[in-house]
Design a protein around this nucleic acid. Sequence first.
DNA 1: TATTGTTATACTCTATAACTATA
DNA 2: TATAGTTATAGAGTATAACAATA
Lengths: 161, 161
Amino acid sequence: MSELQETLDMEARAHSEHAQELRLWLRLLTCSQLIEKRVRAGLREHFDTTLPRFDLMAQLERHPEGLKMKDLSHRLMVTGGNVTGITDQLVAEGLVERTGVEGDRRVFRVRLTELGRRSFADMAEQHEHWIVEAFEGLTPRELEQLHRLLGKVKQYQKELE
Amino acid sequence: MSELQETLDMEARAHSEHAQELRLWLRLLTCSQLIEKRVRAGLREHFDTTLPRFDLMAQLERHPEGLKMKDLSHRLMVTGGNVTGITDQLVAEGLVERTGVEGDRRVFRVRLTELGRRSFADMAEQHEHWIVEAFEGLTPRELEQLHRLLGKVKQYQKELE
DNA sequence: TATTGTTATACTCTATAACTATA
DNA sequence: TATAGTTATAGAGTATAACAATA
């Protein structure tokens, strides 16, 4: 066993009668951490940005008409103050814009600027490459199976809420 | 579609010819974030502790003879300074202890104290419950399949290093 | 009164790099 | 020279709560 494998192999800490679930969780966590670390590093090195910023822009790219701060907060699963902070940064860099909404002066609509759209397109292309690479070890059929199984897991988390 | 489902359903942002991989990644990330959030919240509310602290103690529980700071750093996939900080906290609370190693005065052996072992046993019991609950939506066969597929993903990440 | 969004604050976690002590 | 560990620092990310403006 390589030192790297030894390093990453935290799964054996599962030790109870429910060892199967614990091993699965540790493996799931390890996979997402390994991929996420690479994505974060890539975003930082190549684009001088962070995953939350990328995620916010990705939401806006899907909604050209714009999203309210509250929508962003829900979708990104973080509290409002954080969305304000990230949005402020992106506005300062000219990547997104806040525009008022008629009929409710409390609300803003946040959208990508043209610069933001171009910038996001660049990042998304690289991001796609990193992700495709991460799953190259699986056959198309395995990709599909994994997607289906994780769908059941995700569905169940929502039922637990 | 419920608001919650809508909120969590970030997957549709995948839009390229490699949509399958992107959808899979977003689903994997969502699953691990949902479970991790619950574990973090549980550790904070019930035990006033954090996931990195729990993970460090879990490593020590697996190694009653103790681990060197460097080993912990490798296993937890974080840099040395951070291990020092977390270890300092746990030592201050009497949960772990540093003891010298004869033959190399640079090295420390970090171990759980008796209090640390009892404390970890409490946490591990609850932790197991949260994890078992998270995967209740899967049959034993599906648990096994998912574990196998994630094993391939994990294996491939190591090859990419 | 309730809601949208902002501000202020504090804390955890992390990486980096300079440093000490020992090998 | 190299290694084990610490210290110092800075920044990301987060939650909480108080607040202002509007509904």
